[in-house]
Amino acid sequence: MKVIFLKDVKGKGKKGEIKNVADGYARNFLFKQGLAIEATPANLKALE
Rank of each mutant, 00 (worst) to 15 (best):
A36D: 01
L35R: 04
R27E: 07
K12Q: 15
T40F: 04
K19G: 07
V9W: 05
G11K: 06
N43Q: 07
A26D: 07
P41V: 11
G34N: 11
K19V: 12
L44R: 06
L35S: 04
L30W: 03
F31K: 02
V9Q: 01
Q33W: 15
K7P: 00
K7E: 10
L47E: 06
D23H: 14
N43V: 08
D8R: 07
K12A: 15
K10E: 14
K45M: 14
K14H: 11
G11V: 01
P41Y: 11
G11M: 06
V3M: 04
K7W: 10
L47Y: 14
T40W: 03
A39T: 02
L6P: 01
G13Q: 02
T40D: 05
K2E: 09
V3W: 01
V21H: 02
D23K: 14
K12P: 01
K32A: 13
A26T: 09
M1T: 12
A36M: 01
A22G: 10
K15P: 05
I18W: 03
K2W: 15
G13I: 06
I4M: 08
E17T: 06
G24W: 15
A22Q: 14
L30P: 01
G34A: 07
G11T: 05
L35Y: 11
K14Y: 13
G24F: 14
I4D: 00
K7D: 07
A46S: 12
N43I: 08
G24S: 15
F5V: 00
Y25G: 04
L35V: 06
F5R: 00
D8Y: 08
L35F: 11
K2M: 15
V9M: 05
G24V: 12
V21F: 08
F29G: 03
K12I: 15
E48P: 07
A36Q: 00
G16L: 06
D8V: 03
E38T: 05
E17L: 03
N20A: 13
L6V: 08
A22N: 14
G11P: 04
I4V: 09
K32S: 11
D23I: 15
A39V: 04
K15L: 08
I37Y: 04
G13A: 12
K19P: 00
E48D: 12
F5Q: 00
E48S: 13
K14N: 10
Q33L: 15
G13D: 02
I18F: 03
Y25P: 05
K15H: 04
K14P: 01
N28P: 01
M1W: 07
N28E: 12
P41S: 10
V9G: 01
V3H: 00
F29L: 08
K10D: 12
Q33S: 10
L44S: 04
N43A: 11
A26V: 10
T40E: 03
D23F: 14
L30K: 00
F29E: 08
V21R: 00
K2P: 08
L6G: 01
K45H: 11
Y25F: 12
L47F: 14
V21I: 10
D8A: 07
N43M: 07
L47S: 07
A46N: 12
Q33N: 15
A36I: 07
V21Y: 06
A26I: 10
G24Q: 13
A26L: 12
K15Y: 06
K12W: 15
D23R: 14
L35H: 05
G13M: 04
T40K: 04
A42W: 05
A39Q: 02
L44T: 05
P41W: 10
I37H: 04
E38A: 10
N43R: 07
A42L: 09
G34L: 08
K15S: 08
F5D: 00
F5Y: 08
N28L: 12
V21L: 06
K45I: 12
A26W: 12
G16S: 04
A36W: 01
F31L: 12
F29T: 08
L44M: 11
D23G: 14
R27P: 02
G34T: 03
A42G: 11
K10A: 14
L30Y: 04
N20M: 15
K15F: 05
M1D: 03
L6A: 02
G34P: 00
L44Q: 06
E38Y: 06
V9P: 01
L35I: 07
L47N: 08
E38H: 06
V3I: 10
A26S: 06
K45Y: 09
K45P: 05
R27F: 10
K19W: 08
A26Q: 08
G16A: 03
A26P: 01
P41T: 09
V21A: 03
K12M: 15
K12F: 15
I18R: 02
Y25N: 06
F5G: 00
N43P: 02
N20T: 15
K7H: 13
E38W: 07
I37M: 11
R27G: 03
N28S: 09
K32N: 09
V21P: 00
V9F: 05
G16P: 01
L44I: 14
V3D: 00
E48G: 12
G11N: 09
V3Q: 00
E48W: 08
L44A: 05
F31A: 02
E48M: 13
Y25E: 08
V9S: 02
L47W: 14
V9R: 02
N20E: 15
I4T: 01
G24M: 13
V21M: 10
K7V: 15
A39K: 02
F5I: 01
E48A: 13
I37L: 10
N20I: 15
K15D: 02
E48L: 14
F31M: 08
A36H: 00
F29I: 13
F29D: 06
I4R: 02
A39E: 02
V9H: 03
F29P: 02
F29W: 13
L6H: 01
G11D: 09
A26E: 09
A22I: 08
V9N: 01
K2I: 12
E48H: 11
I18V: 13
K45Q: 13
V21G: 00
K2T: 13
K14Q: 11
P41M: 11
G16F: 09
T40G: 03
I4N: 00
M1Y: 08
A42T: 10
A26R: 03
N43Y: 06
N28W: 12
L6N: 01
E48V: 12
K19R: 13
V9A: 04
N20Y: 15
Q33M: 15
R27K: 12
D8L: 04
I37A: 07
L35N: 03
L44N: 04
G34H: 07
G24A: 15
K19M: 13
G34V: 03
K45N: 11
K45L: 14
F5S: 00
V9D: 02
F31S: 02
K7A: 12
Y25D: 07
Y25K: 07
D8T: 12
K32L: 12
T40N: 08
R27I: 14
A36V: 07
I37R: 05
F31I: 12
E38K: 08
L6Y: 01
I4E: 01
L47I: 11
I4A: 02
I18M: 06
A39I: 03
L6I: 11
A39F: 09
N20K: 13
V21S: 02
G13W: 14
K10Q: 14
G34M: 09
K10F: 14
R27D: 03
L47K: 05
I4W: 03
L35M: 08
A42H: 10
N43W: 05
Y25R: 07
K2V: 12
R27Y: 11
G13R: 02
K19D: 03
L6E: 01
K32T: 11
D8W: 08
L6T: 07
K2H: 09
K10Y: 14
A26N: 03
K2N: 11
Y25L: 08
I37F: 04
P41Q: 10
V3G: 00
G11I: 02
N20R: 13
E17W: 05
K19T: 08
D23L: 15
A46V: 11
A26M: 09
A22L: 11
A36S: 02
M1V: 14
K7G: 06
E48R: 11
A26G: 05
I18P: 01
M1K: 08
K32Q: 09
L30I: 02
V3Y: 00
L6Q: 04
K19Y: 07
Y25T: 06
K14W: 09
A22D: 15
A22W: 11
G11Q: 05
M1E: 04
G13E: 02
F5A: 00
K12L: 15
K7N: 07
E17R: 03
L30S: 00
K2S: 10
G16E: 02
K15E: 07
K7F: 14
N43G: 05
R27N: 08
P41I: 10
G13N: 03
Y25Q: 05
R27T: 09
G13S: 04
L6W: 02
L6K: 02
K45D: 10
A46F: 12
F5T: 00
I18D: 01
G24K: 12
L35Q: 04
R27V: 11
A42E: 15
Y25M: 06
L47H: 10
P41D: 12
L47A: 08
A36L: 02
V3T: 01
K10P: 15
V9I: 09
D23Y: 15
K45G: 07
L30V: 00
G13P: 01
N43H: 07
E48N: 10
I37D: 02
N43S: 08
R27L: 13
M1S: 06
E38V: 06
K32D: 08
G24Y: 14
G16D: 06
D23W: 14
I18A: 03
G34W: 06
F29H: 09
Q33F: 15
I37V: 13
I37G: 01
K32F: 08
Q33R: 15
L35K: 04
V21W: 02
G24P: 13
A36E: 00
A42R: 09
K7M: 12
L35E: 02
G24N: 14
R27S: 06
